[in-house]
Design a binder for these strands. Structure first.
Lengths: 167, 167
DNA sequence: GCCAGACTATTAACATGTTAAGTAATATTG
DNA sequence: CAATATTACTTAACATGTTAATAGTCTGGC
């Protein structure tokens, strides 16, 4: 059933939605990681924050948000929680009091090192199931897609039904 | 800085996280669609529901959740909102009172048909920026990944730190 | 017909996604 | 230097993600 589709251009089949395809693939991957995240008592986003801080040391809040693909309001709440549970530490930047520097705390480091082998085992399973070369190629493709989309020219404006000029 | 990494296997670089790579790519795509979703006053998830119902007609709640890649508690709230605003209609299934059938309402159909051309324009821009063949290949790859991961054998258990047998 | 067990949808509780508004510190301009 | 704009982060409000618990409903065995 595809009712009411006679007036305009034929509508794209729902299965050909790029956001949906990326979401479905991501869910399939996350299904492998969620059980152990749950066992260790951290959410996916909290893990991303700990993971980034473990690699990068002390980082500003804004930079951390970009690293973790989080919006700053979300990160703000996450850091409040992680600080309260002693997994990270915050301090104002000496040079600019607006900025906040975040670092992983010993308890956070310990948690991360306890879960890391479990996470790596899942990665090995995924690469075995999908193929190591194919996995590497997918990383490349996804990065290329990101680069192709982030250039602002060749992007037609999203037409606003309210404030639209007369075409 | 990559401190405290001497004891075990070397930890994967944070940039080689498959969930992160899929998320970043998806965000890059969604950045193209979010403005018009906002203009039409629907969220991404509400749009997915309308889109699925437009294609499939009347669908059970559980099947709709799978179609839209939503968990049933989320869908339950979304449907409550969409029903209150007159975009969808619900009725109990005649044969099984446990099940609920959902269908798009005239107002929902109208909204969808108004936004569809805008959405299609963004799809054309994406395929132009990334390449039509390459986009098609990506759909294939993502579907293959999903199929590769959903088979349950060859998946090592996520070790639970509480109830772990002595190996 | 009755009941234990399985199934479907919803609600609850906590965490995050998203947009807008607010607050404090810094940079800029006249 | 004072008024203004900009920047970095936070808070607020609403919607969704995630897991667990709940409330009806159905099914099969008795």
């Amino acid at each position: 059933m595809n009712g009411g589709n006679d007036a305009g251009a034929p509508m794209r089949d729902f299965s050909r939605s790029l956001p949906m395809a990326l979401l479905r693939a991501r869910e399939a991957v996350m299904d492998r990681f969620r059980p152990s995240l749950r066992d260790f008592g951290v959410t996916e986003q909290q893990w991303r924050v700990l993971r980034a801080l473990y690699d990068r040391g002390e980082v500003e809040t804004g930079a951390l948000a970009r690293l973790c693909c989080l919006l700053t309001p979300s990160l703000s709440r996450i850091l409040k929680h992680l600080e309260a549970t002693g997994l990270v530490a915050r301090r104002p930047a000496p040079s600019d009091q607006r900025r906040t520097l975040v670092a992983i705390a010993p308890a956070g480091r310990a948690l991360l090192e306890r879960r890391a082998p479990c996470s790596e085992a899942q990665y090995r399973a995924i690469e075995e199931a999908f193929g190591k070369e194919r996995t590497a190629a997918l990383y490349e493709t996804l990065e290329d897609l990101r680069n192709a989309l982030q250039n602002p020219e060749s992007r037609p404006p999203n037409r606003d039904p309210e404030s639209r000029p007369e075409s």
